[in-house]
Write a protein that binds this DNA or RNA. Structure first.
Lengths: 169, 169
DNA sequence: CTGCAACCTGAAGTCGGCTTCAAGTCAAGC
DNA sequence: GCTTGACTTGAAGCCGACTTCAGGTTGCAG
């Protein structure tokens, strides 16, 4: 095995990886427990990371930014090669799905923004028929797509009937 | 007191409020503990809410959507009148600041998206100089503005020196 | 060869935003 | 007036994503 030898100097200690990735060492160990990254060990049991680990971490962080949990990130990550940079095709699928997630998120923010603007115009937030009110009320209970910015989806509960008569204040 | 009487039928039980707001009753009690909403009590100690409470809840949910914590939402909420719909001017300040938060978030997503697109084009995620890599690496450690989509800011830690030499793989 | 920073482990703690539980009380329709 | 479902409380539990801690080991500069 002459190719692929991570020649000693290409190996990072956890401290170095921490510095370069911006993640705390504790976080890196946590990621390892979750199977997001892997390390070889020295004879003395210390972790050593290949530089490719930085790529995996980059991937995970980006995944978080598009709203994925670490578990979800792992699923996506597992579909990419562990020791190489992904090929264009491999990367494509992932990137595509992220694109649409991002687009959804942007669209959602645009909607919220539009509603805010409307509210400025009308000086409302009265209950009668404010877009923002309706946004937070019904949209919060709507399906996926409103979820990502909220820390947790609160509307997994009832939301049973359209018990909203006319918004009689 | 003829004006302002919440004539009995304008008062909602916690169950009704739950239904109309999409929040669980437990969440509503939790919001009350945080001071986000308030209730009067019946002689038998049950909560009764005015319809205006729906407005407050709407506000809080919207605040969460722009990335505020409940504590932050409370601060904003406390600057608006408790029993009336806010005036245009009152609403303006809040809306303005939310607008810019939203704009930041959108911009951030656009950046991420652009980087993803770049990655599709170049088939990269190689360590050499991938925008996405740099995004997740440095941008994650960057100041406020990258924070909101991440559940927690991981870069409150060190990130001490520009220890990033050339990206020698 | 020594000293000390960096590393190791498992267990426990933290934080925000809730939910669940147990045990008891209220309100309203028959 | 009784039943039954909606309500009350405080305390504890849960989730994700980590951090902190305590007590022990390693690796490398001098």
């Amino acid at each position: 095995m002459i190719a692929n030898r991570p020649s000693r100097h290409d190996l990072l200690t956890i401290g170095q990886l921490s510095e370069r990735s911006g993640l705390a060492t504790s976080a890196l160990r946590y990621y390892e427990r979750l199977g997001l990254i892997h390390a070889t060990r020295t004879t003395g049991n210390q972790r050593r990371y290949t530089r490719g680990t930085l790529r995996r971490i980059a991937f995970v962080r980006a995944a978080q930014r598009v709203g994925l949990s670490l578990d979800e990130a792992k699923v996506a990550l597992d579909r990419l090669p562990e020791h190489r940079a992904p090929s264009g095709t491999e990367w494509d699928g992932v990137a595509q799905s992220w694109q649409s997630r991002i687009d959804e998120q942007i669209a959602e923010l645009e909607r919220l923004k539009a509603k805010l603007t409307g509210c400025i115009g009308c000086g409302c937030l009265s209950l009668t028929r404010c877009g923002l009110y309706n946004a937070a009320d019904r949209a919060a209970a709507a399906g996926p797509g409103a979820r990502y910015l909220l820390t947790r989806d609160p509307a997994t509960g009832p939301e049973p009937a359209p018990t909203d008569g006319p918004d009689s204040v």
